[in-house]
Design a binder for these strands. Structure first.
Lengths: 200, 200
DNA sequence: ACCTGAACACCGTTCAAGT
DNA sequence: ACCTGAACACCGTTCAAGT
């Protein structure tokens, strides 16, 4: 019954494996780190094998950005959909975002490549979607429309700005505790319902 | 008396020639276009000769950023120092900035490379110096401190944003007339003295 | 269906040799 | 003092051949 040696000598790769490696590379070294030869080394295959899965590097970048859009926008939003209270929902979402260092560093790296032709449209959609979702939650809390949008922008730019800072300083720039404290302060400052807001 | 053939067969290059070529390259293709081999082709020398003038590519990038800081910040400011009226001074500076497409595209390209370790400190100084200079002029016009800084930021980001747009669309994105009209609208909206400002 | 290996183009860097 | 030319490393891309 056992056809493979128990250390399956080399599970063949699929396109998705290259995409996952590219996502990790972006978090560590930005878009420029999505390079065929280094990724091939990391995956322990020849770089020639890359071209069976993708026509060229740009195709990998495009596929990676698609995966990023799906995995880092809709999925986290779905995950907190069950939380009824909007304040709790914001807390859960923010805590998850700040706890995921790799995700935060990747988001900052992609924001820094905003002018790249493949990045531009995806980044625009992701940013708009995240801001709209945050603003909706603030509105549910009782904030008037304009206030909700201002708070959403503030929280989101603080998140991005922090990971931009972390990119610059390296992983030692902030301890896990400091990261959690930053997220807590941010939430305490912006997530209480407005004074006089109606409970529905 | 004539020691050189009249088409001076090849005036030897100096480091400054490489810097000038690099400045032109940034305006056209961003920081990534500062590449030894393409610049050598443009200057019609072998790429080996580059390494007589600079130890490596980063040294050329650093020298180019220094020259950019000097030429595109202090020099334009000195040029308008003779203009006594602050409103006129702002108009002269803005008109010059918008008239210089190459300079504007280069500024936008460098702003897009804000996270590059060599660019970061220079860009920070240049931005701070320009904003402070603009804010001072607005203050002279009679704007309170905070208002002056807000206007300076608005005018400066509008300038940067426009050339960012132009980078994306290519040179056909805006005619010279449209460029001048944009600058005029911007000035008309922000450069009248505040109502009730005292003349000193 | 997925992979190797060799080849070629391109760019950064070094260096011995030229003028 | 400035430059060439050849060499090497690195990465993107192609492709014939392998399993």
């Amino acid at each position: 019954m056992v056809r493979q040696p128990k250390t399956r000598s080399r599970p063949r790769l699929a396109a998705a494996d290259w995409v996952q490696a590219a996502l990790a590379a972006i978090a560590e070294g930005g878009l420029a780190a999505v390079a065929v030869e280094p990724l091939a080394r990391r995956l322990e295959v020849s770089k020639g094998s890359f071209y069976w899965h993708f026509p060229n590097r740009d195709a990998l970048v495009a596929a990676t950005l698609e995966e990023w859009e799906r995995a880092e926008t809709e999925r986290p939003i779905e995950r907190v959909r069950v939380v009824g209270d909007p304040a709790e929902r914001l807390r859960a979402l923010t805590a998850a975002a700040f706890a995921d260092r790799t995700g935060g560093l990747r988001d900052a790296a992609l924001a820094a490549s905003a002018d790249h032709p493949l990045v531009q449209p995806v980044l625009r959609r992701v940013t708009a979607r995240r801001l709209a979702y945050l603003a909706d939650a603030f509105a549910e809390l009782g904030c008037p429309e304009a206030d909700a949008r201002r708070r959403a922008l503030l929280v989101y730019t603080a998140y991005l700005g922090l990971f931009h800072y972390l990119r610059a300083t390296g992983p030692a720039g902030l301890t896990e505790a400091e990261l959690r404290a930053y997220a807590r302060d941010l939430l305490d400052a912006f997530v209480q319902p407005r004074r006089g807001a109606k409970r529905s």
